[in-house]
Amino acid sequence: MGAITFDISLAFYFFAMLFAVLDLSKSTKTFPKLMLISAFIGFGFQTVYIFYEGFSLGHVPFVNPHEATSFFAWCIFLLFFILEYRYKVGLLGAFITPMAFLLMFVSFLLPSELKPLSPVLRSQWLGVHTVFAFLANAAFAMAAGVGFMYLVQEHYVKSKRLGGLFSRLPSLHVLDEINYRLVTVGFPLFTVAIISGSIWADNAWGSYISWDPRQIWALVTWLIFGIVLHARLQRGWRGKRAAALSILGFLTIIGAFAGLALLQKGQHVFL
């Protein structure tokens, strides 16, 4: 049952992406609706999948790369629904659903069997650390997506060629605002993830930090988004710079994810 619910949600996410891309090519009222409905159904099935896995394992179900990327996509869709509800941003789906679908597809390709979790890692900190880390990463992913939308729209306004998606993309102000909100939400979540992770590490191995590559990358990411926030508040780094920096931050996350998952080294063997 687990695998089937995953496959169904993958299929619906695919449809959501398809409708989102069709929405780009032609403005109608139907495509955004179909996109949201498909995404919602996919989300429902994935939620069932995650709970099912969780119950059968007896711990949080994101401890191998397959589950982790799947949960990452789930968090992105969760935030996507919240943003759609809160801001009703035109074309947001076209920039977010491909990213989330890609994660789901990677997850689909990765082996789903589980190595038994070593007893040192069995702790309630596992849940806290991973849930916060993924919610934060999802917020950063969205910030990057919205940042990309900002760069596209800003290009239209600066170059004075107002064709294409100009009239359908939201205003620069709204895109900048959402990008800022997402970073301000993501940053504290990420901070909690790092703190809970080091407490967990202390419990398991007796030291808060062991300088393994994953931990270093996490600190680098934390620093980048710290700079995004600080520079905005102190020096007015808004708009283009904020958008570009949040894309850079997200690429760091993805790079760390991909690189370390492939290397399978260090204490974050499962990620």
Binding site: Q153, V157, L162, F166, P170, S171, L172, H173, V174
Partner: peptide, 9 residues
Amino acid sequence: ELARKIFND
């Protein structure tokens, strides 16, 4: 129209 696309409101 342009002002709206920059400032929204």
